[in-house]
Nucleic acid binder design. Structure first.
Length: 512
RNA sequence: CGGGGUGUAGCUCAGCCUGGUAGAGCGUUUGGUUCGGGACCAAAAGGUCGCAGGUUCAAGUCCUGUCACCCCGACCA
């Protein structure tokens, strides 16, 4: 079978991932370590995510704003755990001018900054400084902000979308009067991420809380949504942190209560990033490239005219244009259909494979025969092949226009169902001993074979006991993903690691 | 940041060990034949061999440094 990609998922999942990112025109290397060029198709997907999330943030009372890229070093230094967590991966600006010295353009020694600036790895500290000025009274609370921005973390091992030195994200920052309110906010945003991932990205996730050693630096509680990729590895797809008063204390974010006392504000932060694009690739991609859920596809339907340098070409193009206009006037999944007649020069077969690789949900080929018969020939990307051959369907034009919204909805739910089944089947709850866990994750040396997650009983060890668990997990290249919010019954189980009475179920697995 | 690998035409790569005229396939352009399920023939264009030094009569090839990417660790959205 000839696939559209040079490598299959089964052969080498990592190479396959890179092939999809490249062949689907999502992104490419920039020549700057860890920094990627996001191409229009990849950026279009991110913009769809932005539109949909932004709407949900505003519906829940948040306002957008923008804070600076540079943060004075002294700001970062305020929260001890925060510094420790991020110190190793920060880009630092030390000069404000270049100078030609001995024929080499370099930072001007006379232009050294009094105080170095760091490029934000996240904005808790700058936003906190503003909160300190803006929050005086209980009447100023809650303060619900979000910003869409780029951040920089000097990662050691970058991978396009999954771990880049610079990435795009949104970071929500809120301040509240009470811990209860702040915790509610944290879980509210986590639920927005969970439902967004599941409904819009068709990427089902498990929402839960991270164990202490996996917390965001400076957080009281860290929650995340975890998605299962097609190789069984976990991808942390979004996080929400309850910060307690840790940042408020470090930055003096205080307000006067109704009773007139001074109290520290309770803060939260939460974010998702362009990593989600990588998650969509690894959730839905197949050996012919990307498959996009219609809700986030920049184009949901592509019309490829089949032109033959003959007089009837013009009628084919007219047919495509009028069909595109007709489709664009109707709605699917609650929004106008995004359709494009691909009029660019080039061979139609090449165009078709290009759109298959880019993952467009419905690809139509319109030739003279369709024009004559008043029909449309289409490929549903979620099931593009029947056996080795492309699965073409022919519909009367009117029927196609009428059914297009339902078809798009079907593609969305088919991708979701497929991913949901993989997540369900990929979680083992029958590995009840450490030996069984070891056997499962170490079986054979074939690192490419699928290994999902294990759900195991957990006693919430701390201190030395937790350190010991970490070592055991690390030896198996495992990490604790989350303790799911939705817990199965736990009748008298003992912690898989410590043997102490279990307090909850956790998921462990390999991760990106 | 440690260990290993790679960097040569738009793309995928050969050539490097053993220094001596810059190569192939795909793509592109042109002409022709085909042509509704990844066509064929012919011709042409296309490269400061990642970058900077060094050794040499001569460097893609050997040496040193550096940048980027890939794999394995440590780190992480």
């Amino acid at each position: 079978m000839k696939n559209a990609l040079p490598v299959t998922r089964a052969e080498n999942f990592a190479d396959w991932y890179q092939a999809v990112v490249g062949e689907a025109d999502l992104a490419e290397e920039s020549g700057v370590r860890g920094c990627m060029i996001i191409r229009p198709w990849g950026y279009g997907i991110w913009q769809r995510m932005q539109e949909l999330l932004d709407r949900r943030f505003r519906e829940t009372g948040h306002e957008n704003c923008y804070f600076p890229l540079f943060i004075p070093l002294s700001f970062i230094a305020k929260e001890a755990e925060h510094v420790e967590g991020f110190a190793k991966e920060m880009a630092v600006v030390t000069h404000h001018r270049l100078k030609m010295i001995d024929g080499v353009l370099q930072p001007d020694p006379d232009a050294k900054l009094e105080e170095p600036l760091i490029v934000r790895p996240t904005s808790e500290t700058v936003i906190g400084a503003a909160f300190q000025r803006w929050i005086r009274s209980h009447r100023d609370l809650p303060l619900l902000l979000n910003q869409w921005a780029n951040v920089v973390r000097w990662e050691m091992r970058p991978r396009l979308f999954l771990r880049t030195a610079e990435f795009l994200w949104q970071e929500g920052h809120t301040a509240h009067a009470t811990a209860e309110e702040a915790r509610e906010e944290t879980l509210r945003m986590l639920e927005i991420y969970r439902s967004f991932a599941e409904d819009a990205l068709a990427m089902p996730v498990v929402a839960g809380e991270k164990p202490p050693h996996e917390r965001f630096p400076g957080a009281e509680s860290t929650y995340s949504i975890e998605a299962m990729m097609q190789d069984g590895k976990a991808l942390q797809a979004g996080t929400a942190h309850y910060l307690g008063t840790n940042f408020a204390r470090a930055q003096s974010i205080r307000y006067q209560t109704e009773q007139g006392d001074l109290a520290y504000a309770q803060t939260t932060s939460w974010g998702v990033s362009t990593r989600l694009v990588g998650g969509v690739v690894m959730t839905h991609g197949d050996d012919d490239g990307l498959r996009l859920p219609p809700i986030i596809a920049p184009r949901q339907i592509i019309l490829v005219p089949i032109l033959r340098d003959r007089p009837e070409d013009s009628s084919v193009l007219e047919y495509c244009d009028s069909l595109a206009a007709e489709l664009g006037a109707s709605s699917a999944l609650g929004e106008p259909i995004r359709v494009l007649a691909d009029r660019k020069p080039g061979r139609s077969v090449e165009k078709r494979w290009g759109w298959i690789k880019r993952g467009v949900p419905i690809i139509c080929e319109i030739g003279a025969r369709d024009v004559a018969a008043g029909s449309v020939t289409l490929i549903r990307r979620d099931r593009a092949r029947q056996g080795e051959k492309i699965d073409f369907t022919s519909l009367a034009r009117g029927e196609f226009v009428q059914r297009a919204p339902a078809l798009l909805a079907e593609v969305q739910s088919a991708l979701q169902a497929e991913a949901r089944e993989r997540l369900r089947a990929g979680i083992r709850s029958d590995l009840t001993t450490l030996a069984a866990v070891e056997a499962y994750f170490n079986e054979s040396d074939d690192s490419e074979s699928f290994r999902g997650w294990a759900q195991v009983p957990w006693a919430r060890p701390e201190g030395a006991a937790l350190d010991s668990v970490e070592r055991q997990l690390k030896a198996l290249k495992l990490t604790v993903r989350v303790a799911p919010l939705e817990q199965a019954p736990l009748p008298g189980e003992r912690c898989l690691f410590t043997g102490a009475p279990a307090r909850e179920w956790i998921l462990i697995g390999r991760a990106y």
